[in-house]
């Protein structure tokens, strides 16, 4: 039995797949913004002089890094409501999962970058009368942030692709849309090919944006 490639399916299903793509982008952006805030807080908590803060951050990073995202997603969507009695929508659960998951990795990125800045920078900041917080904001953070960009970019791309795991809780993102189209058309080759190309396009655009930001920041002074 011969296989005949039918590119017209790719075109005719594109609008549906695009819907999925937009939801993927939406979940990624909101998830990563929240994850970034979580990660920066957790990263600084880990650098804190206060032991309880460090402990909380350690526990958070440890648990999230030590368990698969798909388990986290299912626990959040199916498990937790049994305890709390409050159901959340699949999209909300997806955003929370991406945020909490990326936050743990971003936490390590932030901690590492801040720690990599020479101790003399903090001393120089303090020696001109800046407070600890001012030195962090105006001296340490801008330098640390530049060093974070490649790793942050990496994490952003991973998180974008991780949204495909939300298929298990029925979020109508790109992968789920593909699956559903195949269930009615049986054109697995064409659809998965298209889905893959759309992911590739998204990650390429994202890395291009990150490279532009990186270049812009390193053009002025080197760190």
């Amino acid at each position: 039995m011969g296989f005949d490639f039918d590119p017209s399916v790719m075109l005719s299903t594109l609008p549906l797949l695009m819907d999925g793509m937009f939801l993927t982008i939406f979940i990624t952006i909101i998830g990563l913004i929240t994850g970034f805030i979580l990660g920066v807080s957790s990263g600084f908590a880990k650098l804190s002089r206060r032991a309880p803060l460090r402990l909380i951050s350690d526990a958070y990073v440890g648990v999230i890094r030590g368990t698969p995202l798909i388990v986290q997603v299912m626990f959040l969507y199916f498990g937790l409501p049994m305890l709390t009695g409050a159901r959340i929508s699949p999209v909300t659960a997806g955003i929370i999962a991406i945020a909490v998951n990326s936050g743990a990795y971003i936490s390590e990125i932030v901690r590492g970058a801040v720690q990599s800045i020479d101790k003399g920078q903090m001393e120089a900041g303090r020696s001109i009368g800046l407070t600890n917080v001012q030195t962090m904001c105006f001296v340490i953070w801008p330098q640390a942030f530049r060093r974070m960009i490649p790793s942050l970019g990496n994490q952003f791309i991973i998180s974008l692709k991780d949204t495909s795991l939300l298929v298990v809780i029925g979020v109508a993102e790109l992968t789920r849309q593909g699956q559903e189209i195949i269930a009615t058309t049986f054109r697995a080759f064409e659809i998965w090919l298209t889905v893959g190309l759309i992911y590739l396009a998204m990650t390429m655009v994202l890395s291009r944006i990150l490279r532009i930001i990186e270049k812009k920041l390193t053009d002025q002074g080197s760190v």
Partner: peptide, 11 residues
């Protein structure tokens, strides 16, 4: 204070 390694802010 002036340091041995300058500690200028590179950014």
């Amino acid at each position: 204070m002036v340091f041995q390694n300058f500690n200028l802010f590179p950014h």
